[in-house]
Design a binder for these strands. Structure first.
Lengths: 208, 208
DNA sequence: TGTACATCAGTGAACGCGCGTTCACTGATGTAC
DNA sequence: TGTACATCAGTGAACGCGCGTTCACTGATGTAC
């Protein structure tokens, strides 16, 4: 964070303003003119930092991955501190996730992975590969979480844990789409809480 | 279907080719030039049918709603024929839905509601309203289904049935995003099957 | 400490292309009398 | 049955604007000797 050179600061400012616009309108509809206006730079300054518009897309996705990794690390790390039981820790982590999303002003800002997914013909192979890596990263993270749980509590229903891991990302992605379509920012966190309910029912040893 | 005038046929052809392109690349990235080329019409012919590009977006969404309603009616209607029990009927219906999606060549083509959701600043109020109506329609449909179940089997976990109804659409939307990002068409139907597992656990009276 | 050169982080003007939209026109079909 | 007119379903050419990209140039900072 600290110790950024002037160039790094400008680059970060471009990415920040570009992300807002891309999430609101899609990638193609976000013009470079518009980005440089809010980043307070000239158009040629933009091309000093990114060789073309595709390079911007890839940088957006890669930064998104990094930021999100850190957030998840924090969330799940704290949850594990609060309980030694992997199931309880996961339930706490999912509740944290729901609260995080709920507290976002105006709802979750949207996921650029989804944006890229819905406009993939626009992007080159680099960008698509970055997108795929992001989703795979989520899968491995949540798969590890569910593996720990399943080792202690065998799941009630015969399901594939990779699919369950994908469900975490899928619920959030779907929740964002729904929240946007309905203009109701709370939907995303409600959906995460339903996923939490499923995880609880699926792994709970006995009903009380 | 039958008894279309020449104009209606042309209009339908425009919508068909436009939908393919919009789902693949997003709305803004799909040019009218490109649409008219594959619909084998001139550009001015396009503007005879749609007053501007926004009118095309609204028409796409409205047609999408109609088609999907018919599909769901068929699916859930058949499921109800197969079982008098509302829970069993829902489980059969969800299985049908998963199979329907799985059998789509190349995976679910994507949902234009999601496309519009992720590019909403591009569209006027008309289009956004149509989008909201679509999602509300799904909510009411699935809410009715879960109400019937809950009247017989009280849910195991205290949850809001509207949220659960939204989960059906959300899982499909999220599944489509994941399937596209991962380039794995099977993900969407896998996610629907997990939702089915949740519904089963949530409403099943006793574990066996 | 001073000078020469290199790199960093941009600026400003121009480019050509593709886009959505308009407009005057037209040939085929339908309707009234 | 023939004629006049209206509507349907388009065509073809032109428009101006905004877009992504390029290119020659520049002032500030860093580095070598």
């Amino acid at each position: 964070m600290a110790m950024m050179t002037r160039g790094e600061e400008t680059r970060a400012r471009i990415l920040d303003t570009a992300q807002d616009a891309v999430l609101a309108k899609g990638f193609e509809a976000t013009s470079i003119d518009e980005i440089v206006a809010s980043a307070e730079i000239t158009k040629s300054g933009f091309f000093y930092h990114f060789k073309d518009k595709n390079a911007l897309a890839r940088a957006l996705i890669e930064r998104h991955i990094t930021v999100e990794e850190e957030i998840f690390d924090g969330l799940l790390g704290r949850a594990r501190e609060l309980s030694d039981d992997p199931l309880q820790a996961a339930l706490i982590g999912l509740k944290f996730l729901a609260e995080l999303i709920e507290d976002m002003p105006g709802g979750h800002p949207g996921c650029i992975v989804a944006t890229a997914a819905y406009q993939d013909r626009l992007f080159n192979a680099d960008v698509r590969a970055a997108n795929r890596r992001a989703v795979l990263g989520w899968r491995h993270r949540f798969r590890a979480m569910f593996d720990e749980i399943a080792a202690v509590y065998p799941p009630r229903d015969g399901i594939d844990l990779d699919h369950l891991a994908d469900m975490v990302s899928g619920i959030v992605e779907g929740g964002i789409v729904m929240a946007r379509a309905m203009n109701d920012p709370l939907i995303t966190s409600q959906q995460v809480m339903l996923l939490r309910s499923y995880v609880k029912l699926l792994f709970s040893p006995r009903p009380d």
